[in-house]
């Protein structure tokens, strides 16, 4: 079949049919509808397109909705059952049942102890580091090794001091 001449009624019908297939709505102007009704070239395509769109619109309305209420009930039953334990646990927590209170107290104590231990560890590391740095600076300035400084500080507390031993004798 020859292609439709551009601008001819058949061509315009074809364009309208293409648009109808792309949007799902066929609204042919009256003069084109009149042409298509009697035209052996574009008429069948026009009628088939119109019939298809009409059937598609009718198909949705014709679908039996019998299974819908049952499916909806099943969903609503299920969510009610799922919601019940959640509501119970929320109520239990808000009402402050003994079990919940005990669990909360345990968790809180464990958390506080953990925090204290972490802070103590950080302080210990910081003091050690700073002390060691000071001793190293002292060694660089005075030539006294960190070990000697520590020994000097520790000497009053040591009974192995020879002078004290002599004195005690």
């Amino acid at each position: 079949m020859k292609p439709h001449a551009v601008g001819s009624a058949c061509h315009r019908v074809q364009m309208e049919l293409d648009e109808a297939l792309a949007t799902g709505t066929l609204a042919l102007p009256a003069e084109l509808a009149l042409h298509a009704d009697g035209c052996p070239r574009c008429g069948p395509e026009y009628r088939d397109t119109e019939a298809l769109l009409s059937r598609l619109r009718g198909a949705a309305a014709g679908i039996e909705l019998g299974p819908v209420p049952q499916a909806v009930d099943k969903v609503l039953d299920q969510i009610t059952r799922e919601a019940a334990p959640r509501v119970f646990s929320m109520v239990e927590a808000s009402a402050g049942s003994p079990g919940a209170q005990h669990r909360q107290k345990q968790v809180r104590t464990r958390w506080i102890l953990g925090q204290v231990a972490a802070v103590a560890a950080v302080l210990l590391i910081a003091v050690g580091g700073i002390g060691y740095a000071i001793l190293k600076v002292n060694e660089a300035v005075s030539g006294v090794s960190p070990g000697d400084v520590l020994a000097k500080f520790a000497s009053p507390f040591r009974f192995t001091d020879t002078a004290k031993i002599e004195k005690a004798k």
Binding site: D18, L21, A22, T23, G24, D48, T49, A51, L52, L53, R55
Partner: peptide, 13 residues
């Protein structure tokens, strides 16, 4: 939509 409806139209014809 165009591709689908063209195909369906062909099948139903």
């Amino acid at each position: 939509l165009h591709a689908a409806l063209s195909r369906m139209r062909g099948q139903l014809m």
